[in-house]
Protein backbone atom coordinates (compact mmCIF):
# COMPACT_ATOMS: atom_id res chain seq x y z
CA UNK A 1 0.00 0.00 0.00
CA UNK A 2 1.31 3.41 -0.93
CA UNK A 3 0.34 6.79 0.44
CA UNK A 4 -2.09 7.39 -2.42
CA UNK A 5 -3.83 4.07 -1.77
CA UNK A 6 -3.99 4.93 1.91
CA UNK A 7 -5.65 8.23 0.93
CA UNK A 8 -8.37 6.44 -0.96
CA UNK A 9 -9.17 4.17 1.96
CA UNK A 10 -9.22 7.10 4.39
CA UNK A 11 -11.51 9.10 2.08
CA UNK A 12 -13.86 6.11 1.80
CA UNK A 13 -14.06 5.72 5.56
CA UNK A 14 -14.35 9.44 6.28
CA UNK A 15 -16.98 10.65 3.84
CA UNK A 16 -16.60 14.14 5.26
CA UNK A 17 -13.18 14.37 3.62
CA UNK A 18 -12.47 14.46 -0.08
CA UNK A 19 -9.55 12.47 -1.42
CA UNK A 20 -7.51 15.66 -1.64
CA UNK A 21 -8.31 16.52 1.97
CA UNK A 22 -7.40 13.07 3.22
CA UNK A 23 -4.14 13.37 1.30
CA UNK A 24 -3.46 16.62 3.18
CA UNK A 25 -4.31 14.94 6.48
CA UNK A 26 -1.95 12.03 5.81
CA UNK A 27 0.86 14.31 4.71
CA UNK A 28 0.36 16.49 7.77
CA UNK A 29 0.47 13.46 10.05
CA UNK A 30 3.73 12.18 8.60
CA UNK A 31 5.23 15.68 8.36
CA UNK A 32 4.58 16.19 12.07
CA UNK A 33 6.24 12.86 12.82
CA UNK A 34 9.18 13.68 10.55
CA UNK A 35 9.73 17.02 12.27
CA UNK A 36 9.74 15.30 15.65
CA UNK A 37 12.22 12.55 14.76
CA UNK A 38 14.48 14.95 12.88
CA UNK A 39 14.95 16.97 16.06
CA UNK A 40 15.68 13.79 17.98
CA UNK A 41 12.32 13.55 19.70
CA UNK A 42 10.87 10.13 20.51
CA UNK A 43 7.38 9.38 19.18
CA UNK A 44 5.33 6.99 21.22
CA UNK A 45 1.98 5.94 19.80
CA UNK A 46 0.37 3.40 22.08
CA UNK A 47 -0.91 0.39 20.19
CA UNK A 48 1.10 1.29 17.11
CA UNK A 49 4.70 1.61 18.15
CA UNK A 50 7.62 3.80 19.06
CA UNK A 51 9.92 5.70 16.72
CA UNK A 52 13.20 6.81 18.21
CA UNK A 53 16.76 7.55 17.25
CA UNK A 54 19.39 5.02 18.16
CA UNK A 55 23.07 5.77 18.35
CA UNK A 56 25.50 3.88 16.18
CA UNK A 57 29.07 4.02 17.38
CA UNK A 58 31.91 5.02 15.13
CA UNK A 59 33.55 1.99 13.58
CA UNK A 60 36.15 1.02 11.09
CA UNK A 61 34.50 -0.37 8.01
CA UNK A 62 35.95 -1.71 4.84
CA UNK A 63 35.50 -0.73 1.28
CA UNK A 64 34.12 -4.04 -0.01
CA UNK A 65 35.70 -3.52 -3.40
CA UNK A 66 39.22 -2.58 -2.44
CA UNK A 67 39.44 -4.00 1.08
CA UNK A 68 40.71 -0.66 2.27
CA UNK A 69 39.69 0.31 5.80
CA UNK A 70 37.42 3.28 6.07
CA UNK A 71 36.48 5.21 9.18
CA UNK A 72 32.71 5.36 9.69
CA UNK A 73 31.71 8.18 12.07
CA UNK A 74 29.09 7.73 14.80
CA UNK A 75 25.55 8.34 13.63
CA UNK A 76 21.95 8.29 14.70
CA UNK A 77 19.53 6.00 12.92
CA UNK A 78 15.75 5.95 13.15
CA UNK A 79 14.34 2.77 14.63
CA UNK A 80 10.79 1.56 15.03
CA UNK A 81 9.50 -0.90 17.55
CA UNK A 82 5.99 -2.25 17.02
CA UNK A 83 3.50 -1.75 19.84
CA UNK A 84 1.50 -4.41 21.59
CA UNK A 85 -1.69 -4.10 19.56
CA UNK A 86 0.18 -4.21 16.26
CA UNK A 87 2.15 -7.28 17.35
CA UNK A 88 -0.99 -9.03 18.53
CA UNK A 89 -2.84 -8.24 15.34
CA UNK A 90 -0.02 -9.80 13.35
CA UNK A 91 0.12 -12.95 15.36
CA UNK A 92 -3.40 -13.67 16.51
CA UNK A 93 -5.08 -12.74 13.29
CA UNK A 94 -5.79 -14.84 10.25
CA UNK A 95 -2.24 -14.22 9.01
CA UNK A 96 -1.07 -17.20 11.11
CA UNK A 97 -2.70 -19.35 8.46
CA UNK A 98 0.13 -18.83 6.00
CA UNK A 99 3.06 -18.97 8.38
Amino acid sequence: MTRSELCKVVAEQYPKLSEVQSDIAIRTLFDAMKAAVCSGERIEIRGFGVFQLRKRKARTGRNPRTGESVYVPPKNVLSFKAGKDLKERLNNGNTLGHL
Partner: peptide
Protein backbone atom coordinates in the same frame (compact mmCIF):
# COMPACT_ATOMS: atom_id res chain seq x y z
CA UNK B 1 -8.75 10.79 11.88
CA UNK B 2 -5.26 10.10 13.31
CA UNK B 3 -6.67 6.95 14.88
CA UNK B 4 -8.28 5.95 11.60
CA UNK B 5 -5.10 6.43 9.55
CA UNK B 6 -3.07 4.39 12.03
CA UNK B 7 -5.77 1.70 12.12
CA UNK B 8 -5.80 1.38 8.34
CA UNK B 9 -2.00 1.03 8.33
CA UNK B 10 -2.23 -1.68 10.99
CA UNK B 11 -4.97 -3.53 9.10
CA UNK B 12 -2.87 -3.46 5.94
CA UNK B 13 0.16 -4.86 7.75
CA UNK B 14 -2.07 -7.46 9.36
Amino acid sequence: LVEGILRIIKETLQ
